[in-house]
Nucleic acid binder design. Sequence first.
DNA 1: CTGAAAGCGCTTACAG
DNA 2: CTGAAAGCGCTTACAG
Lengths: 354, 354
Amino acid sequence: MPVDHTGPVRPTLAAVARRAGVSSSTASLAFNDSGPVAQETRDRILAAARELGYDGPDPRARSLRRGRSGIIGVVLEESLRDAFRDPMNVVMLDGIADVTGPSGNSLLLLTETAASGSSLVEAPVDAVVLFGCSPSVDSKVEIVQRRGIPVVAIEGRPLPGVLDVGLDNREATRALAEHLRGLGHTRVALVTLELDRDRRRGILTPSRIDSATSFTALQRVRGAEEVYPDIGGYATLGSTIDEGRIAGRALLADPATRPTAVIAQSDLLAAGVIRAAGELGLDVPGDLSVVGFDGVRIDDPAAAGLTTMVQPALDKGRAAGRGVLELLAGGSPSSVSFTSAFRRGSTTAPPPAV
Amino acid sequence: MPVDHTGPVRPTLAAVARRAGVSSSTASLAFNDSGPVAQETRDRILAAARELGYDGPDPRARSLRRGRSGIIGVVLEESLRDAFRDPMNVVMLDGIADVTGPSGNSLLLLTETAASGSSLVEAPVDAVVLFGCSPSVDSKVEIVQRRGIPVVAIEGRPLPGVLDVGLDNREATRALAEHLRGLGHTRVALVTLELDRDRRRGILTPSRIDSATSFTALQRVRGAEEVYPDIGGYATLGSTIDEGRIAGRALLADPATRPTAVIAQSDLLAAGVIRAAGELGLDVPGDLSVVGFDGVRIDDPAAAGLTTMVQPALDKGRAAGRGVLELLAGGSPSSVSFTSAFRRGSTTAPPPAV
DNA sequence: CTGAAAGCGCTTACAG
DNA sequence: CTGAAAGCGCTTACAG
């Protein structure tokens, strides 16, 4: 069925005013309840609007005049599918919407991938929230800032003029490493999140670590190194069970070099490692201890009872939303940092006796 | 650390033009490559822009003048978290972005819940995509249409002037039911998606079905009824493993009334039912056959090898994106309907001998 | 190749 | 309580 879209031209406020016999100033006041308008006049205006099929001010014109669009840009560096595969991102997004929605704001998804144009720079946003962005978007962020648009970053590198909503990634990972050391583990491996935008998968080397651009992944590596200075491991393409499984197979295949514990940088990755272990006939935690990160609810028995650090993702999103609102109101909020909580599960135990 | 946001006022095109000693018309052409500008003039304009810190046209003004904002609204009737828990929605969103992103469009998330204001009506969108919306948004959709804004609906009720991207929900469910009948099942139960916005969980009754507002859920019920006219079951709050498990427990608890097969309206729900069956000591497919819907990749062993209908979610999203683009270009695309493919897995078998 | 003019549709001081 | 005026910042015919 073909759909027709050649309607009459949309009526304007001016047309309504003309028909009602008033000035457009008055008509505007009537539609915005923003000034004293006689009841009789208001009725006339509303009647004229009804007759003309006018349903309120054009958002585009209003946003130019007011200097506000009611749109908050959310900048992701991946495809939407990749970004939302990580439940943490979805929860944080929900937290932002929770706080900013009631005052009439909506979220615009801006995927700043290599392929895309400069959507960030060309979008009519009032404010911007960066979701773990790499330095490659810095120049665009500066442009946006020069326009006076507030920028909030969730777990970003410290950037001048950007309000940071942080997490104790380093300390939290150190706590997990200490937990493993306390159990007696000496052969421990990391399974990291994506380290940079190249998204190459493979053995974790010092040079790969040094060239990492993902602030969060790097901080978590640093935390582990505080306890296990020479820790190696495997770098994945991102937080999924599949990636964890691939990493797990790579790390666990050879009994001679096999670690007795794995620090996965997310629960999803941890679930994958546990699955790989199972496939190799290894018992968790009997043969292998595994810890994760996030404290997400994973619908996978393999991840039930995972030892992990629980991060307050919803609160982080809400804090980012509050930061946006305060900045838009002209305030000067301070950066906030959230703390993760250790949750001892059933996936860690002393290393197997040799 | 407090963040400062009192920068200098953003420079305008007019200021750049003045400084370069040209008209703003010429400056505009220079920034848009939309007309012939002498190289020397262009250089002067760009230099002036650099000196003033001008990074290009203000998106708000541009969108008013051009009548295009580059923003496509995506209307959801749930919280972002609920919506994105369903992988189908994420994939469809990705499909839309796939197609519309390259021409400079971004997606604005509009959650039309009872709580929210009328964000749909007040957002500066060029077009709108409805994600399975109920009649409660109809009046807002009409307003948007009156403004000449194209509307595309994914699996919606037929709405005048709305381009539909459909799925063979009814026929596909009938095929699943026929598969079960072919195996010899006579006691079959449904586990449905949310039926309406009330989001009440519970036994499926004819009156609940009759008052359903979710087009997709209802179509799938109708398809099952074509084979099992008096089919009953359980209505959930949405497509999650947990909801499936709750429904499964309710349906399977009593051995006397227990069905021998369950038609779950999504793979996630099916996985939950299978898990519930396992907890009750029932073997799938020995004691119970289970079918799903979607063909999504679920990271749950319980859902591995599920018998289901595979729907082309990415293609649906892309088709919606193409529809948007064609409508924006003034075309009159036809509605499209996609077909699901039966995938026989290992979760269906003849009913147990009595 | 460049400029003067009009105008996108609205809101906001300001004056009455 | 109402209106005339200015202007948000840009783009687009049109004329030269």
